[in-house]
């Protein structure tokens, strides 16, 4: 009987330990998104709190099951506050220098995904489109020559953008934005189209952000320039190709867009006005 009670007691104590471990795992998870000092402080405080509660409960002779329930309740009711805390800390984190941000795997993955997701998408899109182009090229008699040329052009633009991303980020974003316009609008495969739309949005936003340099007018001109080039890519394939030489007029839009982007890249944003003394 005593042995039975002891085994039950040990089992319940293990349950407390398991709940505490679950709480620690939750804390380790959500602190992965905040700065290193804030994460370390929150983790150490909760670890200390869990230890203190279990020790106090043992001293008071509280049943392990009741302690486990209490710990679980405290953790569960605190989840909204935890998430709000993460949101506040992340807002503060944006103004911190990079070296102060937590070097956790989660933060690295999040940062990478936030900045490079559309480049990864462009790489996948490029692989799909180039594969399609190569397949068509290898078909006997090359029955889809126009489609093949289009696929190889689009795939090359995307691949060039991916390769240049690290060294020439603005050029890379422009190439990817132009390259993604056709898959986003002309490839009647849902996955390719969805990926194309996402890559087009990501690259355009990145290009506008880089070219605008906090100036709304420069940002707007960049967006218009990208749209003009994209409209050429789509418009020529959609209606211009069948119109013969007249269809080549579509490229006037691309030239105008390219000139606009070049001009914006060479324009200095106006200096901020100093407040009156």
């Amino acid at each position: 009987m005593t042995g039975q009670l002891t085994r039950e007691h040990i089992g319940r104590a293990e349950a407390t330990g398991l709940v505490a471990q679950l709480v620690r795992t939750w804390v380790d998870f959500y602190t992965g998104w905040v700065s290193a000092p804030a994460a370390e402080r929150r983790r150490d405080e909760i670890h200390s709190d869990l230890w203190e509660q279990q020790t106090f409960a043992r001293e008071m002779g509280v049943a392990p099951f009741a302690v486990a329930v209490s710990i679980a309740r405290r953790a569960a009711l605190g989840v909204p506050a935890d998430l709000l805390w993460v949101r506040t800390e992340r807002a503060a984190l944006r103004s911190l220098p990079a070296e102060q941000k937590a070097r956790t795997a989660m933060n690295s993955v999040t940062r990478f995904a936030a900045h490079w997701w559309w480049v990864l998408g462009a790489a996948v899109l490029s692989a799909i489109v180039l594969t399609m182009g190569m397949r068509q090229l290898l078909e006997p008699g090359m029955p889809y020559l126009e489609g093949t040329i289009q696929a190889l052009t689009v795939g090359s633009l995307l691949a060039a953008g991916v390769i240049l991303k690290a060294k020439m980020p603005r050029t890379a974003a422009a190439l990817i934005a132009v390259g993604a316009s056709s898959p986003a609008t002309l490839y009647w495969a849902p996955i390719v189209m969805a990926l194309g739309i996402l890559v087009l949005l990501g690259s355009t936003v990145d290009l506008v952000r880089r070219m605008a340099r906090n100036d709304v007018v420069l940002g707007a001109l960049t967006a218009v320039g990208v749209l003009a080039i994209d409209a050429t890519m789509v418009g020529y394939v959609w209606v211009g190709f069948d119109a013969g030489p007249v269809g080549l007029l579509w490229f006037a839009g691309a030239i105008a867009g390219a000139v606009m982007l070049y001009t914006v890249s060479r324009t200095r944003p106006p200096a901020p006005v100093a407040p009156a003394a």
Binding site: S70, R73, R74, L77, G78, P80, A81, D82, L84, W85
Partner: peptide, 14 residues
């Protein structure tokens, strides 16, 4: 008699 939840307590202390 309930203990304050972790997230709420440490956020308030901060």
């Amino acid at each position: 008699g309930g203990l304050t939840s972790h997230g709420t307590l440490y956020k308030a202390l901060g």
